[in-house]
Amino acid sequence: MTTTAAPTGAPRHSRLGWTVSDTLAITGRNLLTYVRLPQLVIFSTIQPIMFVLVFRYVFGGAIATPGGSYVDYLMPGIFVQTVAFGAIATGVGLAEDLGKGLIERFRSLPMAPSAVLGGRTTADLIRNVFVVSLMAAVGFLVGFRVHTGPGSFLVGMLVLLLFGYALSWGFALVGLSAPNAETAQATAFPVLFPLVFASSAFVPLETMPGWLQAFAGNQPVTVTVDAVRALMLGGPVVAPVLEALAWSLGLLALFAPLAVRRYRRTQ
């Protein structure tokens, strides 16, 4: 297998093969960090759990939702909120690696340049899978029920994970442009806050003033939440899901090249 370890040795993989292998190596490294510092993941679950409890038991009673119970309305919103805020971690992690000189070290290695970003976003996708599963468990504990079926539920999960993945690339761009991790965090929050709260995640759009509905009705969080809700609670599925996928893929197509370009220029 490993006949020669010569640094110049003939590649045993194709270029694509090495890119995949490097991306996996970086993914593993980032996941290892999450395992070693479980507080990173634990803290990112405490906030959404508190949101579940606050909206389910404090505000929920005052929010009227068309048909069904509020907890069923709430949980798809919570899932999307969780992956959206979780995406900030991508930017913060990259800004930290930059600040510590680790990115610089990677840049002096004969590895695929895209692997640093690919590995980071993949690790954060895997972390999101874990966190969202946990949130689903919490949801089921407080009375959330899927009205469709396990298949639709899983498709809903995939739709929102894709959305989180696309946002990760957006925050990768933020993290690479920020002077430090704190700034990356501080920049991300005011962007996400209006997107998540001026959306259909927690309350029906109809309760908002007209001007706000215009924004809330046409932004990716609402679109994704509506698609996930349709998949988990029932109703017409095709159009909202296609619209959600279009948003996620569009954001990905925009941010991934920008982040890669930014990475190449960072020196």
Binding site: A25, I26, L109, P110
Partner: peptide
């Protein structure tokens, strides 16, 4: 791994 040495 990143310098492509092979695991062993």
């Amino acid at each position: 791994r990143l310098t492509h040495l092979g695991r062993g």
